[in-house]
């Protein structure tokens, strides 16, 4: 059998691996979004007490300063010591928490780039702080955030491949299985895998650009 027959035969496995990568990506982005937004809001509008702010700074420092491979191992071995967690579960958790550290910073600078006068004007019109954040500051911050968020999305797609190291059967590991089982042409298999990531990345980016254009408002183009 030459490599093309192998690829044809095993392509469903690659697609399955791609599916796992996409689910992992979606899960980690959602966790990162919710938690990252929470962190950002506490940092900007929460109590100024060091007891609250310091742990958040530490959290960001740690998750941004340690390679994801190490985090994957720490979460996988750390949690499985006390609780039976799947490699996939550990990957979602480690990558989601890490993405939160990046997303919180994206959101924070987006919120900070909304001029203070916007909040002031909203409050002067009788809006409560929460209403002003929801109706005035947030919609503007979202427009500032969407570009950097697209970058974060891109790098997370590629980093899902690293879940490979703790045995998550995503795209890269499926490729490895095919290679070891067939002795086939490794080059072609990896080229196909690279292409799949590339397409996924491009598709995601185009959707986000489309969203950015849809939300575009004069005065916000950079």
């Amino acid at each position: 059998m030459d490599i093309y027959d192998v690829l044809l035969r095993d392509f469903p496995f690659l697609l399955k691996g791609l599916g796992v990568a996409i689910v992992l990506l979606a899960a980690l982005l959602v966790i990162g979004f919710v938690l990252g937004m929470g962190i950002c809001l506490v940092q900007l509008y929460g109590p100024r007490s060091r007891l609250v702010q310091w742990p958040l700074v530490l959290y960001e420092r740690i998750f941004r300063g340690v390679p994801i491979i190490i985090m994957l191992f720490i979460f996988f071995y750390g949690i499985s010591g006390v609780w039976d967690i799947s490699a996939f579960g550990a990957a979602v958790l480690a990558m989601g928490l890490r993405s939160a550290a990046y997303q919180s910073q994206i959101f924070r600078s987006a919120f900070q780039s909304v001029p203070a006068g916007q909040m002031m004007a909203a409050r002067a019109m009788g809006m409560s702080k929460i209403m002003a954040i929801r109706h005035i500051v947030f919609p503007q911050a979202a427009r500032h955030a969407i570009g950097p968020w697209t970058n974060e999305f891109s790098s997370e797609i590629k980093e899902t491949s690293l879940a490979y190291v703790i045995g998550v059967v995503e795209l890269t590991r499926q490729a490895h299985y095919i290679i070891t089982s067939t002795q086939g042409n490794v080059l072609t298999v990896f080229a196909v895998v690279a292409l799949l990531y590339f397409i996924l990345n491009r598709t995601g980016n185009s959707l986000l650009y489309a969203l950015e254009r849809k939300l575009a408002v004069p005065g916000f183009e950079k």
Binding site: P115, G117, Q118, M120, A121, A124, M125, I136, Q140, R143
Partner: peptide, 11 residues
């Protein structure tokens, strides 16, 4: 309240 620098909601 009318501000010196307008502060219209820019979005």
């Amino acid at each position: 309240f009318v501000f010196q620098d307008f502060n219209l909601f820019s979005h």
